[in-house]
């Protein structure tokens, strides 16, 4: 059971406002790049390195933009995302959890495509791949572009939101015809 939309919307709006007033607008998807950098740097030495001037950089021009964050993950943006996970986990636990069946897969998925776990996991993996590739191409996701962007009257936020719903609605209408 979700929170009533009026309370939920007020809470969401206050969180976005507080983030902008005290620090900066909310964003999530860049931290997938930072996490990738941390993983790559742990596997292969020298993915990021320091210049003679002491600046962190990388031979990959895109990763170089996040090199400083990869070198020191204890920064606002990365901890924000970790705290978000903690907050969501705690909130779910406090309302009694989501139940064993939902932990396995969402009810609407099961109603449309059956209970085979690996089919759902495979699609979730593919969805994650597409979404994060797309979010980096667009330089933002639902949090950064749509919510933070549109609430600051950013033109890019509206372009992004138009693109998202133009494909999301027909895709969902085609794929998820059966209710749970």
């Amino acid at each position: 059971m979700s929170l009533d939309w009026k309370w939920g919307g007020l809470a969401l709006g206050f969180v976005f406002f507080t983030a902008l007033m005290l620090v900066k607008p909310v964003g999530v998807s860049t931290q997938f790049v930072v996490a990738d950098g941390i993983i790559a740097n742990a596997l292969v030495d020298g993915v990021i390195y320091q210049t003679e001037a002491g600046q962190w950089t990388s031979d990959n021009a895109y990763l170089a933009q996040s090199a400083r964050r990869v070198a020191d993950p204890i920064n606002y943006d990365f901890l924000f995302v970790l705290a978000m996970a903690l907050g969501a986990g705690l909130s779910a636990w406090l309302r009694g959890g989501i139940g064993a069946s939902e932990r396995q897969m969402p009810a609407i998925w099961r109603a449309n495509y059956g209970a085979g776990a690996w089919k759902r996991y495979g699609v979730a993996f593919a969805g994650g791949f597409i979404v994060l590739f797309a979010a980096r191409l667009a330089d933002g996701c639902t949090s950064g572009h749509m919510m933070s962007g549109m609430s600051q009257a950013a033109v890019s936020g509206f372009i992004f939101a138009a693109g998202v719903f133009a494909t999301a609605i027909p895709t969902a209408l085609l794929l998820y015809t059966k209710e749970a």
């Binding site: 597409i130 667009a138 999301a168």
Partner: peptide, 14 residues
């Protein structure tokens, strides 16, 4: 931003 949005919408709905 537009192409990324179109792609993200598909992955989100999927």
């Amino acid at each position: 931003v537009l192409f990324g949005g179109l792609m993200l919408g598909f992955g989100w709905a999927l």
